[in-house]
């Protein structure tokens, strides 16, 4: 068993990092909305799902069916990421406007918002299965069947670690995800909008008194969180080359777990939690088999929360100094 671990350590680490980066990007959306509104946006899983289809739309419209190289490849990847961000951010903002703001205005309880989120989530899944996928992607009667992406990027080996190859798509996912997170960290800590977000997170009433437009800040929060999920969707699609209308479900649960593991409300926590979860899943599977993967990750979550109820890094968007 220990021998297995040594043999599979490096490939598992690379896969864990790549998948963990995708979890982390989605987790950001949960953590930001929670930080500002104290609300778990359970429809965020569908925001991710729509991001994968937004990205899918680019090669579909361009009619690409074989691998690309050079500038064409870079251009298509950038377009796919942008399309994914647009689709996801648009969905997230619409969700806020239609499913949450009316409730917030009337001072409804957080439980009402939770039900609203679950309803919106089912609505979006069925909307895609029944209307969007059959019509927009020209797949009549096949709304519930997995949709594949033709291979865009050849799986070439970039370099190798101790004889285990690291492929270019894995590096793309990790680098792009880290880049987005650094940009987001800058945005929240260095800009005016970021200051507004932090102020609202700490004390909404005081923020209003100081002239912060709360509705605008909440909208921005959903926009940015949605955009991150869209990047995750595009990166997922490029490396795994398939998606379906239910893809968000497991990712939503895992990313939410990652957000709680890292410390919900904490942006850097989402990164730590996502990558930790990705690694633990893969390492755990080496010892106990892949069927124990989920059991191991949730056992670790419970253990972490027993000893550090606020997660690995703790809640911090509220405590951050303005």
């Amino acid at each position: 068993m220990f021998n297995d671990f040594i043999n599979q350590f490096w490939p598992s680490t690379i896969d864990g990092l790549a998948f963990g980066s995708i979890y982390a990007l989605i987790a950001l959306g949960y953590t930001m909305v929670y930080g500002v509104l104290r609300l778990i946006n359970f429809a965020h899983s569908e925001v991710f799902m729509i991001g994968t289809f937004g990205a899918m739309f680019v090669p579909f419209v361009l009619g690409i069916d074989s691998a690309l190289t050079g500038l064409a490849l870079v251009g298509v990847i950038i377009l796919m990421i942008l399309a994914g961000m647009l689709a996801s951010a648009g969905t997230a903002v619409a969700l806020e406007r239609i499913a949450y703001r009316p409730l917030r205005r009337r001072g409804a309880s957080r439980l009402a918002a939770l039900i609203s989120a679950i309803g919106a989530s089912i609505f979006l899944q069925e909307l895609f299965a029944l209307l969007v996928i059959p019509n927009l992607f020209d797949r009549p009667q096949q709304g519930r069947i997995q949709m594949g992406l033709p291979r865009l990027m050849e799986r070439t080996e970039l370099f190798s670690i101790f004889g285990h190859s690291v492929r270019v798509d894995q590096v793309l996912v990790i680098v792009a995800a880290l880049g987005m997170m650094i940009a987001l960290d800058r945005l929240v800590n260095r800009t005016k909008i970021g200051r507004g977000i932090r102020a609202t997170a700490q004390n909404p009433e005081a923020a209003v008194l100081m002239g912060v437009d709360i509705d605008k800040i909440v909208r921005m929060t959903f926009l940015i969180g949605g955009g991150m999920a869209g990047v995750a969707g595009a990166l997922y699609l490029i490396s795994y080359e398939n998606t379906n209308y239910l893809i968000g479900f497991l990712f939503g649960i895992k990313a939410f777990t990652a957000a709680v593991l890292g410390g919900i409300g904490n942006l850097r926590g989402a990164l730590v939690g996502g990558i930790a979860l990705g690694l633990v899943e893969n390492y755990g599977a080496i010892f106990f088999g892949s069927d124990w993967k989920h059991v191991i990750s949730f056992t670790i979550l419970v253990l972490v929360l027993m000893f550090r109820p606020t997660g690995i890094l703790g809640e911090s968007l509220q405590q951050a100094r303005a």
Binding site: D4, P11, S12, D15, S290, K293
Partner: peptide, 21 residues
């Protein structure tokens, strides 16, 4: 050698790494 996977998932890298080893 045995392993199993969850068909609801889309990332089977842990299974694949076991097979490769």
């Amino acid at each position: 050698t045995d392993d199993s996977l969850d068909p609801a998932e889309s990332d089977f890298s842990s299974v694949v790494n076991k097979v490769a080893a």
